[in-house]
């Protein structure tokens, strides 16, 4: 009984000590995108091991979840930095402002290509964006009519494609990769259909509704957020295609191959040059109010945007990040380390 009593006292002491700890924090807290996670963690580790600052703690919460935490307010219980695989939305800037988070520094770190890949044991596929749209959309236009997607096999869409069932493993709707894929590949493909392109002019919202809706009849399989799992499933099922970030293709090039989109192969060079059409920018956002309160934030930005990290031959490129062109990176670095806050109007128009 006495032991129990002292245990309770110990817990009470711990609990009371906690808020004091929260008042002084000497460690950067980062939240956000699971796509940026592998890069941010590499920078954090390098930063922690080569400077006198403590290694930042990085949570993988997804872009949306990260921004929500980030916009929660100013104060040490809120994160200092959030990673995002898309630009911050106007609505998020507003919700930030409501909670007093006004000066946000945007740092663009590079690109991520979204690849459509299959197992090495079957042939390489070459697709156009329109074919991707026709294979994966919930509704497709046939003879001027929108009908539920009738295509079962790739060869139904185009006789030049393989005579195999359409089976694409991809991320669920909560994923930033899925958002980017839908926006870049599906929307791009829908625009290539004259009827939908006409629709886009008159009713943008209805067009997006059609272009963004992915079929739910088994042609598209939601395979979870774990890209490694998709890679393994592709190996087990050579007829299936998978959708994931370029770094997973890069690391598993001995087992899977990226499909050509509009005739362009997803390689480091093609994504960097912008020739490969399905790629997006990656960002992180810094809360300016925390600079000077939590030590090391400016140094962390400097490490992230340095040549040895985000440069063409930096360690992030080794991890699969497609770097910005040098001139652009220099400009980003100048603005970011100078803590130039995001211009609200520019962000709203994006």
């Amino acid at each position: 009984m006495r032991i129990m009593g002292s245990a309770l006292v110990a817990i009470a002491v711990l609990a009371c000590g906690a808020p004091q700890e929260a008042e002084a924090r000497d460690q950067i807290r980062v939240v956000g995108s699971s796509t940026v996670f592998p890069f941010a963690t590499a920078v954090a580790e390098q930063f922690g091991r080569t400077t006198a600052f403590r290694t930042p703690v990085i949570e993988s919460t997804g872009s949306g979840g990260g921004l929500k935490l980030f916009c929660g307010g100013v104060g040490l219980e809120h994160p200092d930095v959030t990673n995002a695989s898309r630009a911050i939305k106007a609505s998020e800037i507003e919700s930030c402002a409501r909670n007093g988070v006004t000066d946000i520094v945007e740092v663009r770190i590079g690109f991520d290509g979204i690849v459509i890949a299959n197992s090495k044991s079957s042939g390489r596929v070459s697709l156009t964006k329109e074919q991707i749209f026709r294979a994966l959309a919930k509704q497709v236009p046939i003879d001027g009519q929108l009908v539920p997607n009738p295509y079962r096999k790739w060869s139904d869409i185009d006789p030049s494609l393989p005579d195999a069932e359409i089976e694409v493993l991809g991320p669920p709707p909560t994923s930033g990769t899925r958002d980017a894929f839908v926006e870049l590949a599906m929307e791009g493909g829908a625009e290539a259909v004259p009827m939908l392109a006409a629709k886009r002019k008159e009713d943008k919202k209805a067009f997006k509704g059609i272009a963004h809706a992915i079929r739910e009849d088994g042609g598209y399989v939601e395979a979870g957020e774990n890209d490694n799992l998709i890679v393994q499933k592709l190996e087990a099922n050579p007829m299936a295609l998978g959708i994931f970030g370029f770094s997973f293709l890069d690391q598993n090039a001995d087992r899977i191959q990226g499909s050509l989109v509009e005739g362009v192969e997803p390689t480091f060079e093609n994504i960097a040059s912008g020739d490969y059409g399905v790629s997006r920018s990656l960002y992180f956002y810094v809360k300016k109010a925390h600079v000077g309160v939590v030590p090391g934030i400016v140094e962390y930005i400097a490490e992230f945007t340095s040549d040895k990290a985000a440069g063409e031959e930096g360690y992030l490129a080794e991890k699969g990040l497609i770097p910005l062109p040098d001139a652009e990176r220099a400009e980003v670095r100048r603005q970011a380390t100078g803590l130039v806050p995001l211009n609200r109007d520019v962000a709203a128009s994006q």
């Binding site: 939240v31 954090a44 922690g48 703690v57 990085i58 949570e59 993988s60």
Partner: peptide
């Protein structure tokens, strides 16, 4: 509660990340 995180330092107490 944020324990799915990349933490390099070995935690030194019940309040460390």
């Amino acid at each position: 509660i944020g324990m799915v995180a990349f933490v390099v330092d070995v935690p030194d107490g019940p309040l460390a990340p």
